[in-house]
Write a protein that binds this DNA or RNA. Structure first.
Lengths: 233, 233
DNA sequence: GCAAATCTTTGATCGAGATCAATGAAGGCC
DNA sequence: GGCCTTCATTGATCTCGATCAAAGATTTGC
């Protein structure tokens, strides 16, 4: 298990300015709450303040709860990433562990107050948020205009960029999320996701090993099936 | 027509720090490009750098172009708002005027370099981006998990918050966007949007006047039809 | 190593929304 | 002010993905 100072140091390296005073550094550390979240456990923020989350290691999903039994996965986040959980408005949000995780959580408003005059930190947060926004917009496009087949292809390509291991032309994926998670992220059902994966398997575009392993054999084919404007090389 | 210094001043008031030096102020001004965009005209950024847009007045849509004839409206933006247009990646983006607009555009990277040590400006941008992210996530939930009826209700409620005129219990909307725009924003077709509006009209929840006027008569009913977790008051 | 529980795959049917088609209403232009 | 173009509405049919149902894999626990 990662110890608290260790997890915080990894956060500090990524987000805090290297020339931050020790005193300021300690104030940020005092604000952090370390959470060890076991697989399938989730963190609810009934309290209404927006949170900032740092994923030390592990993999998480950010879930929005619409009316009962209708959850939408808003984003996946992996080790080293920072993201913000909105305060509860029309929906309630929770962060759930796909694998055992170590997280650091900060109340967003307190954090921003502490960082009010730290341009470097704000810049890091801005870059992170802009990245989240870009991914969220791409998801919007997929959910608004793409077929089931295209969404699954887009998902596999996105995962290949984020957690794929390249190996002589093919990409190995060890997916931390279940078919249900994929479906809830893509606005589809488990059955549809499974059928689309089967089609890709039959077309020899992918191979699957067990529940979580996927080999992307034909990246070109996959891109062609993602419904992108132009097949970027 | 708004003159350039005037449009920039309105931007400066919203985003730049009041205690910014005159020299810095001028450097930002030099970076700004003023664009008067007529209704239905759009601004393409084939060039690959991300842009920062300030809407002086008017109304705009941010459109992502997926494969031909499949556009998804990613966001609407109205007078006084700032937003970022991502650089072209898997999709190309354009900003299109719903009404005559005056815009200020900045290359995002140059702007951020200028603002590198201006915590106040970065904070404004961060707040704006976080707001965009929140709205984008809500759209994701709608597109992923909501029925056509719910999406249209959500849309009307969101517009009522942003550009509605309250009048003794009812809200008057003068929509700057067409049915096509609404459909492209909600991941539906024109026909479905029109049918849902007709249903709301028959249920006396809304009234429509001409093409763009809508009166929200029963806000409670509308909220109940939006599929929110709990009917917030 | 076997049994139980869970997750995934496959098949059959159904339905919400898309598509195709036509009519009706607004607004623009001469 | 009337014609014409464009946009919105309404109707009929079709389709993709959801739902319902069952069988097959994979993992877990003893």
């Amino acid at each position: 298990m990662t110890s608290f100072p260790e997890a915080f140091e990894s956060f500090a390296l990524k987000i805090l300015s290297p020339d931050l005073s020790d005193a300021a550094h300690l104030r940020f550390q005092a604000l952090a709450r370390q959470v060890a979240l076991e697989k399938d456990r989730s963190l609810d923020f009934d309290g209404n303040s927006s949170q900032l989350i740092f994923v030390g290691h592990g993999a998480t999903k950010l879930v929005a709860h619409a009316s009962e039994a209708r959850d939408q996965i808003v984003a996946f986040h992996f080790g080293g990433e920072v993201f913000s959980v909105p305060e509860q408005d029309n929906y309630s949000y929770s962060v759930c562990a796909l694998r055992d995780c170590s997280l650091l959580t900060f109340p967003a408003d307190d954090f921003l107050n502490l960082a009010a005059s730290e341009a470097g930190i704000l810049r890091h947060l801005l870059d992170n948020t802009t990245g989240s926004l870009r991914r969220c917009r791409e998801k919007t496009i997929a959910l608004g205009r793409k077929t089931a087949a295209e969404r699954v292809a887009v998902f596999l390509l996105a995962m290949s960029e984020r957690i794929g291991m390249e190996q002589d032309g093919t990409v190995l994926l060890e997916l931390p999320m279940s078919r249900r998670d994929i479906a809830e992220s893509l606005g589809l059902t488990i059955e549809t996701v499974s059928r689309q994966l089967s089609l890709l398997r039959e077309a020899h575009v992918i191979e699957t090993t067990g529940r979580s392993g996927i080999v992307l054999r034909e990246m070109g084919m996959l891109k062609a099936r993602a419904g992108y404007l132009r097949d970027a090389a």
